[in-house]
C-alpha cells in the first residue's frame, strides 16, 4: 500500500486533479444551464413537468451506455464525459430548482407583488432566498452524483480516479483498486460533509427556523 503510494503518488494526485477538473467544470456548466432553463420554464407548470420528465428519462439511461452512444458524435475524452454528466445533472438540478420556487408561500409572493415590488426583484429578493435550501439540496445531490459517475468516464478516456480503478481491474492489482476506492469514496464523503456544513450556514444566515441569535 504505502510502497505503491510512495512510488506512484504522482499518478494518484494526477487522477485526483483530473477528477476534480471534470467535476468542477461539470458543476459550473450544469448550474448555469439549469438556472437558465429554470428561468425559461418556471412560469408554466405544464412545460416544467415536460422538461423535468424529459431529463428524467435521460437520467434513467445507464451512464456507460450514454457514454458509448455519444462517442460517434463527440468522440472520446473529457468533452463527452462532461456532456453526459451535465445532462444527468439537469434532472437533479431543475427538479429541485422548480420545487424550491414552488415551495415559497404564495401569500408571501402575493404580498410582495401587492405592495409594488417589480417581478425581477420578487424573484431575486424573495423567491430565490426562500427557495435556497431546496436549491442547495439539488446542488448537493448533483455534486455527489457527479463525483460517482465521473469515475465511469475513465472508460472513454476522460481520465480521473476511474483510470486507477479500471487499471486495477484490468491488471488485477488490488492495491490500485483500494487506492482508487479510497480516493473516490473519500472525495464523495468530504464533499458531502462540506455541503452539509454550507447548508447549515445558509439556514442560519437566512433564519429559516427562527432561531436567530438573541431570540428571547
Amino acid at each position: 500500500m504505502w510502497a505503491y503510494f510512495e512510488k506512484y503518488h504522482y499518478k494518484l494526485t494526477e487522477a485526483l486533479s483530473e477528477h476534480l477538473a471534470i467535476v468542477g467544470l461539470t458543476l459550473v456548466i450544469s448550474v448555469a444551464l439549469a438556472s437558465a432553463l429554470t428561468l425559461a420554464i418556471m412560469r408554466s407548470p405544464g412545460l416544467s413537468a415536460i422538461v423535468i420528465r424529459l431529463f428524467g428519462s435521460i437520467y434513467a439511461i445507464p451512464s456507460l451506455a450514454l457514454f458509448a452512444i455519444l462517442i460517434p458524435f463527440t468522440g472520446i475524452g473529457m468533452k463527452t464525459a462532461v456532456l453526459v454528466l451535465v445532462l444527468y445533472n439537469q434532472f437533479l438540478l431543475i427538479r429541485n430548482f422548480i420545487a424550491g420556487l414552488d415551495s415559497v408561500d404564495p401569500q408571501i409572493v402575493e404580498a410582495a407583488a401587492g405592495m409594488g415590488m417589480p417581478p425581477l426583484r420578487i424573484l431575486f429578493r424573495i423567491k430565490l432566498p426562500l427557495a435556497f435550501p431546496v436549491i442547495l439540496a439539488g446542488i448537493h445531490l448533483a455534486v455527489i452524483s457527479t463525483i460517482g459517475i465521473a469515475t465511469i468516464a475513465a472508460a472513454i478516456g476522460a481520465g480521473g480516479i476511474g483510470t486507477i480503478l479500471f487499471d486495477g481491474m484490468r491488471t488485477r492489482n488490488p492495491v490500485k483498486l483500494v487506492w482508487g476506492t479510497i480516493l473516490a469514496g473519500g472525495l464523495a464523503i468530504i464533499a458531502n460533509l462540506a455541503l452539509i456544513g454550507i447548508e447549515k450556514l445558509a439556514a442560519r444566515r437566512f433564519h429559516y427556523d427562527g432561531n436567530a441569535p438573541g431570540k428571547p
Binding site: Q107, I108, A111, G114, R125, I126, L130, Y208, G210
Partner: peptide
Amino acid sequence: YVIQQIGLFPH
C-alpha cells in the same frame, strides 16, 4: 396592502 396570513418576508 395588508393580508391575513403573515405575508411578512421571513428571511
